[in-house]
Design a binder for these strands. Structure first.
Lengths: 227, 227
DNA sequence: CAGTGGTCTAGACCACGAT
DNA sequence: TCGTGGTCTAGACCACTGG
């Protein structure tokens, strides 16, 4: 048995025992180093693998913590973030980072001269777990800034702009947080995540908005029902 | 700019330039160490993040390589692995590792005294990208071993056992390969993956089989159409 | 202020792959 | 046999957190 595996298994055991529970802080890297008569490099090897497993996560220079329960998400059905979180016992929050207007870009797929760019961070139980970029037509959604943007954009589009989203297409892959996103979620730049590129269409099959979401990989679990 | 980020960006650039293309071998860790007047620890920091991004992967003691194109997969629709791979220009293979009979276990969800346990590894262009465990009732699928098990199990169930799968439920999460799976895919134990737990039901809503798949995270991309 | 994680140096030995 | 990645030691300095 390799040393880093022993350390990993030791922490697995702490978790199984419930010696440490969701949200708790793990022993410090230097404490583990001493306990296993090893070095910090080796201790971190074990911790990083536990993070990749989704069992623990680090807060910059604060320590390592046990991952709370994951949000169960159904990507094929339109659901309101707050509703979903509430059903599963989480306190949900949305923070609007910025709303800007920028020139359209070639691969946006949206037929418009310029685009709104909305950046938001969403939290579960005060833990920032998702960052998203939303792009949409400035003309179609004129004065978007006059609405409260920390709720459901789908609702605003439906009630304020008579735009009903009736089809969406998501491409989901596993990667790491881009550096600018990592900063906003207060994570390290190598943190694994699920990247979701979602395009939503109206009844005329025109692209309504373009959404790029980055979810912490240990904060979400997808459920897909087929056939 | 941190040193490991410089190394990472340098390799990003090689990829963008097409100086190295899908399947190519990267410079060795020691070559990069020398080029950047650094140490292997720091070089590996950069390489491991590129691996987490899904851009490169390592083969044990052979070197680091550029990740080929990902298989696009629609989890909500029943599709044959070979068909899907062929449509996207891959050569697909399935290797049966083992077929055993074991006592039923409490959380299998299958109503049966004993279960078949089928273990398979699937490859794209000769690269092992997925390991799966399939569990099903030994009585319902008597003499399963008499059929060729490297193709579609769904087809065998339909044509040989008059069992049509008409509903399925998948839970998808991001984690790392368990050690025993890592060995079968010839990967290191910390390799990130998508874990898919799939339950499939017949027209009577009875559980037909229980399937646990581990996909290399850089070999697959999910596409979900909604509403 | 002390303690923490983040980054980095300068080496080492090993098992395994390619040849 | 030699080069590769996998693992490990024994330190170091820094930025930031928390009391």
């Amino acid at each position: 048995m390799l040393l880093f595996q022993e350390i990993r298994n030791y922490i697995h055991q702490l978790l199984a025992d419930q010696s440490i529970a969701a949200g708790d802080k793990l022993p410090s890297e230097r404490a583990l180093q001493e306990q296993f008569s090893s070095t910090r490099i080796t201790v971190r090897e074990a911790l990083l693998r536990l993070e990749a497993e989704g069992l623990i996560y680090s807060q910059k220079r604060r320590g390592w913590f046990v991952t709370p329960a994951k949000l169960k998400w159904h990507p094929a059905t339109k659901v309101n973030f707050y509703e979903l979180a509430k059903q599963q016992g989480f306190k949900a929050d949305t923070l609007v980072i910025d709303l800007t207007i920028k020139a359209n870009f070639s691969d946006s797929g949206i037929n418009a001269p310029s685009l709104y760019h909305l950046q938001r961070v969403r939290s579960l139980d005060n833990r920032a777990v998702m960052y998203e970029d939303i792009y949409c037509d400035t003309q179609r959604f004129e004065q978007l800034e006059s609405h409260s943007l920390n709720g459901s954009i789908t609702d605003i589009m439906a009630t304020q702009y008579n735009t009903v989203v009736c089809k969406e297409n998501s491409v989901i892959s596993v990667t790491v947080l881009p550096d600018h996103v990592a900063i906003k979620l207060e994570k390290n730049s190598g943190t694994p995540c699920l990247k979701i590129i979602r395009k939503r269409y109206d009844e005329c099959h025109a692209l309504v908005d373009n959404n790029i979401e980055y979810w912490l990989h240990n904060a979400i679990e997808m459920i897909v029902d087929g056939q």
